[in-house]
Design a protein around this nucleic acid. Structure first.
Length: 591
RNA sequence: CGGGGCGUAGCUCAGCCUGGCUAGAGCGCCAGCUUUGGGAGCUGGAUGUCGGAGGUUCGAAUCCUCUCGCCCCGACCA
């Protein structure tokens, strides 16, 4: 491709409203252009990079035995009412009014449609297991699109759905998808980590997220440097402290009630009473399947609703409203405490280790100081009920945990029979008995692969694409576009490289060398080949990889072989890195 | 949805507080000359419903009201 014939509008200055480096660089390099909040055009260069990611995903999904199809984005609203998600999706579902009184939704995901296909077209255990996938545009009315292409209202997703007769088939499909995801992200050159994820009410430890650690990531990843434990913050367990909980001091004075007028938050309370947040505890009231429950966590900690829900064995857990709280606790929010509370009380383990607590007094404008866990309120229902914090002990090895931001690029999930039961997707077994299919779902955010690649691959001059995602592998830069020798060799190189199956961009613009170098760096093409009058006089051309600081010269006569050789060895090196990682995974599995 | 910020040329911004020349600069774009290995110089040129509507005023980019859009923080996030 000739640069002058494409549309590559590079910018010298950063767009004013971009904050994330991927957003800035993708715009500056002329790869994307914003149309509205969370809506971006992929210009020719950006589209090529996106298609590179798509091709890698497709190859690995096919290799893993998944079958590609394409489902519609416009979906009948009735399908969503049937699964019960019409309301459960909240505000992110985009609705359309069609002719007459017909309504449709734009698919934010495709469990409903694919389950509808399965129930109509799959009837026998002989057709199972099967994994269906598509690469298709999803629509979600995100309350807050952010960071360029990281969170948008319209995005490209690879979504796969597995159907099986039993748990074993589900587990096999899950493992196959998990491995395919590792290969995909290895091939994309992304520094990802796999973390245990919160899987909602359905399955235990049956969900993993693929995260790329990076500062603008919207998810918090908990990691243990010592043993490699990694989990989403929503999911991460907090290890137990090695020392036993000290018994209450029998000689300590009884709790003291203190006036705390209008001090409702932990901050206000700590300032007023001159105590630290870790010496306080806050009482939260939830409705567990409709029944009020009190949860006590330390003032500086955050309650984790999923952990509370699991501990109580509840299906639905929601924060109680202000009226319910006053009714069951006898005090308004901000003054609740565990002493004398009349609803079931569960306590986070960290609370029990605080010798003397400040808690709410269950009366307006009153708190209690000198409250002793186990003496002044029961601690027989202790559990891990909070979000992990940096420094907390690892649940596996006890070393201190660290927290990092991460971009979620993939998610694998065991669904079970949620949709097959709700929508009647059943198969007949060899005895003619009907059973619901066991499902799994597996998603990759394709646009996020690009965002993550740029976030983790750039320098002060611009993007540094991995070879596998770069819109072009090579950029040929003839410095004098009117010199015949320079032009001839450029054309020869372009012809041979293209014939060998490489993507070549030729910067044929009649511009000063500095501009061409700056632009080549900005758009991040991995291999740059400079052809100049000066060089050709000496019989040389220049090669430079984007991540190298200085170019090297090569004899002009050997230009074609040299460039082909560079590309070949780079591809081979990348392949062997991917292979090594694959072997390491296999060894870890069998070991 | 709550809080904050911003809308002036393709991009970055000045002008607004304190209303008044023909609405400006740099980059980019077009033409010409010079230049040609890390975002060149000079000369000439094109490009604006000053986000939109209403109001105040002799007069509004500037003041007031409403409204739309965008960004950031938070809430939310199958």
């Amino acid at each position: 491709m000739r640069w002058s014939q494409s549309l590559i509008p590079t910018l010298k200055e950063s767009p004013a409203d971009a904050v994330a480096s991927s957003h800035i660089l993708l715009q500056r390099s002329g790869m994307i252009r914003q149309l509205g909040a969370g809506a971006y055009t992929y210009l020719p260069l950006g589209f090529r990079a996106l298609q590179k990611a798509v091709a890698i995903i497709r190859e690995e999904m096919d290799a893993a035995g998944a079958i590609e199809l394409l489902m519609p984005a416009v979906q009948p609203v009735e399908l969503w009412q049937e699964s019960g998600r019409y309301h459960a999706m909240g505000g992110i579902l985009m609705e359309l009014r069609l002719g007459g009184d017909k309504h449709a939704v734009l698919g934010p995901t495709h469990e409903e449609v694919v389950t509808d296909i399965a129930r109509d077209l799959i009837k026998s255990y002989r057709q199972l297991p099967i994994v269906l996938y598509q690469i298709q545009t999803k629509f979600r009315d995100e309350p807050r699109p952010r960071f360029g292409i990281l969170r948008t209202r319209e995005f490209l997703m690879k979504d796969a759905y597995s159907f099986g007769t039993d748990l074993e088939q589900l587990n096999r499909a899950y493992d196959a998808m998990f491995e395919a995801y590792c290969r995909i992200f290895d091939r994309c050159g992304l520094p990802y980590v796999v973390v245990e994820a919160e899987s909602g009410p359905i399955g235990g430890d049956s969900s993993h997220e693929f995260m790329v650690p990076c500062d603008i990531g919207e998810d918090a990843v908990i990691q243990c440097a010592a043993c490699g434990y990694a989990a989403n913050r929503e999911r991460a367990e907090v290890g137990t402290e090695p020392s036993p909980i000290p018994p209450p001091d029998p000689s300590a004075p009884a709790p003291t009630a203190v006036e705390t007028p209008n001090r409702r938050t932990i901050d206000e309370l700590c300032q007023f009473l001159q105590v630290r947040p870790e010496e306080t505890a806050k009482l939260l009231v939830f409705l567990a399947d409709g029944q009020p429950v009190a949860v006590l966590v330390r003032g500086d900690h955050e309650a984790n609703e999923a952990k509370v829900r699991r501990m109580l064995g509840a299906t639905i857990l929601e924060p109680a409203d202000a009226e319910t709280i006053e009714r069951v606790a006898g005090a308004p929010m901000g003054f609740l405490g565990p002493v004398g509370i009349r609803i079931p009380l569960v306590v986070d383990r960290a609370v029990a280790r605080v010798p003397r607590l400040v808690v709410g007094g269950n009366a307006l404008d009153v708190h209690l100081t000198g409250v002793i866990p186990g003496r002044d309120f029961p601690i027989d229902r202790l559990a891990d009920l909070r979000n992990a914090e940096p420094g907390d002990p690892c649940p596996r090895c006890g070393s201190p945990l660290a927290v990092r931001q991460g971009i979620e690029i993939g998610h694998v999930f065991k669904l079970g029979t949620k949709y097959s039961c709700a929508m009647g997707a059943e198969f007949l077994d060899e005895h003619g008995q009907a059973h619901p299919m066991i499902m799994g779902c597996y998603g990759i955010g394709v646009n996020r692969i690009l965002a993550a690649a740029v976030e983790t691959g750039h320098d002060k001059d611009g993007i540094v694409w991995p070879l596998s995602l770069a819109p072009y592998e090579v950029v040929l830069v003839p410095l004098q576009v009117h010199n015949e020798a320079v032009l001839d060799l450029t054309a020869t190189l372009e012809r041979h490289l293209t014939a060998a199956g490489h993507d070549v961009l030729v910067d044929d613009r009649d511009l000063r060398p500095g501009v061409k170098f700056k632009d080549a760096d900005l758009i991040g093409i991995p291999l740059r080949v400079v052809l100049s009058e000066r060089g050709l006089k000496e019989g040389t051309i220049e090669l430079k990889w984007r991540n190298e600081s200085a170019p090297r010269t090569v004899a002009a006569e050997e230009a074609v072989a040299a460039v082909l050789g560079e590309l070949k060895s780079a591809h081979e090196a990348h392949r062997s890195r991917c292979e090594q990682r694959r072997h390491a995974r296999a060894a870890a599995q069998s070991g």
